[in-house]
Design a protein around this nucleic acid. Sequence first.
DNA 1: TTGTAAGCGTTATCAT
DNA 2: ATGATAACGCTTACAA
Lengths: 363, 363
Amino acid sequence: MEPIDEEVGEGRKPSRRSTGASGPVSTNGVGLRDVARAVGVSTATVSRAINHPEVVSRELRDRIALAVSELGWIPDGRARAFTTGRSQTIGAVFPTLALGDFPRAANAIQRQLLDAGYTLLLACSEYDPEQEFQQVRKFAERGVDGLILVGLAHHPDLLPFLRQRNLPFISSFIYDPASHGSCVGPDNHKALVKMTDYLADLGHVRFAVIAQSTENNDRASARLAGIKDALAVRGLAVRPQHLAIGTWTIEEGRRLFSQVLSTHPKPTAIICGNAPLAVGAMLEALATGIRVPDDVSIVGYDDIEIMSHLPVPVTTVRVPGEEIGRRAARLIVDRVEQREPDYPLESEAEIVVRASSGPPPVE
Amino acid sequence: MEPIDEEVGEGRKPSRRSTGASGPVSTNGVGLRDVARAVGVSTATVSRAINHPEVVSRELRDRIALAVSELGWIPDGRARAFTTGRSQTIGAVFPTLALGDFPRAANAIQRQLLDAGYTLLLACSEYDPEQEFQQVRKFAERGVDGLILVGLAHHPDLLPFLRQRNLPFISSFIYDPASHGSCVGPDNHKALVKMTDYLADLGHVRFAVIAQSTENNDRASARLAGIKDALAVRGLAVRPQHLAIGTWTIEEGRRLFSQVLSTHPKPTAIICGNAPLAVGAMLEALATGIRVPDDVSIVGYDDIEIMSHLPVPVTTVRVPGEEIGRRAARLIVDRVEQREPDYPLESEAEIVVRASSGPPPVE
DNA sequence: TTGTAAGCGTTATCAT
DNA sequence: ATGATAACGCTTACAA
């Protein structure tokens, strides 16, 4: 009844490559063929039973499922990716994992992707467009189905590259309505307008800003612009000596804080461009006996846990990192699978008012 | 001179799959064939020119290189992975990215892998062996060449699974000489023996421990055991009411700190099992007017930046996360490529003494 | 509902 | 040094 390939198929021609146990292939040795042979059906049927169960008869489906688990067959993702042209893999390039909401978001992305049947490839650019591009090329070579980037500013060759290869991508941690639905995140500019307005409404007029470099960082730029624009509306501006640019460490925050506070006239409100800078500023104030908010108000960006626990809890912009991550993952998957997103892409950045901000000191 | 396949090869049989521009294939359309045709050589030669340049004549190599860049050919990683059985991909499963040295290590792994020509697949287990196993299976399906895990305690089916599929893996953030060179990290037990000895030598006898659950976490277990063993040597022990188990948030640290400090007799030294717990303990002490180290000494684990910047800088165990990450990456690559590691696998955990620890108060 | 067989892009063997 | 070609494991159009 099934003498079909008794000789042809029995000992599937020994591949020249299968060098035995030490060979590169980790596919366990059992393939679709083996399952098919065990059940006495064709590989096509087994494949269908796996990928389109509804189209295979119940009885066969069960026997196949049994054989699969008995033989311990696991689909070979490499072969699958090869034949289908899909790797079920998404690449993400973050500036770093050691800052603000990035770790949270990365986590959320990965979980969400898992649910959608995808796996996350992760890399960091260290805020260097060159590195980002390199990572993206690497990912493209690896055959990712889509990419999650951070921000909209990239290496000049990056977008052409992606376009040419027809590789879907989205930008995260930024929102720009102009970008036809491929952005997910907060409107950084708006967020800092809000924050600045809040401080100005308290009566502040001399603002200092300590922030990370805006070079290659459109989120940071947008935030700085938000501050300047909000001030401009009121006829205010940040004096040059009140603008200090640095990195994203606590130490830097301390340094820049004392730097801007050693000017005359002193600023009465200090806006920090990221969480470590804010923490550093706060701790430096504490250490040097500067009273917050009586002498100076300090506000930050990113609501990481420490912000609310410092001796003087810090007013900050809360960016919903997890939500952004989840949405970024959904969005890229939807684009890859040619579905329209049916959820909001702009994440509300919220001002969390805590004890570190108050009216300016009376002069 | 080259009429060879004027008709056979000219229009490579239109694949039934090439559905045109919207197809799933993002391989840009240009394949090795096209390069070969353009140069007038066989695909084999082009392949060789790419992978074993030394075996191709200089002249041809150059012409091929030219054609490659002109046509914008990029190797199709999926096809490559398929034929070679190697995906040049390493999977890593971390408990979380939002704790201690994990982000740093993940970063370092990724960089190091890049240098070695590999790409990182990253996932989180949330300290759940079930999730970890699921992620590992996913990675195996995706065809990773090797795995970086954290710790030695895993789902019971995990190791058999990896062994059966002959998939190389290493354990990180832990050191166990017994595990024939597949571990890289600090000896957690030894580290806390050191720390406990340090405190005991200062004169402490009543130790409290606030730490995360040791369930499914052999690093945490080892640390706890280290404390207990070091104390036992001196005939000391942690009283039940001085042992508080929780998670890894600052808030939890505050809660557990006040919990153990509300006992009688009070502990004079508090060992915190991770960084957020230590930060929380420190901030709670500060907030409630408990003097550190005069009333109580507080020590932590992991030397994240905030530790040295709190109003009272925290004595802690410094684990070289970046070094661990780099070594983990090198080690797994070496195993995959069947090389012997020629660098140390044990990372020294160092006690960083700061102001938060001192002699116990005189009674 | 199931089987047959082509084809995915690359690598590597073998022959030249 | 180079070319012809099989093979990798799976999916899917088409035939039955």
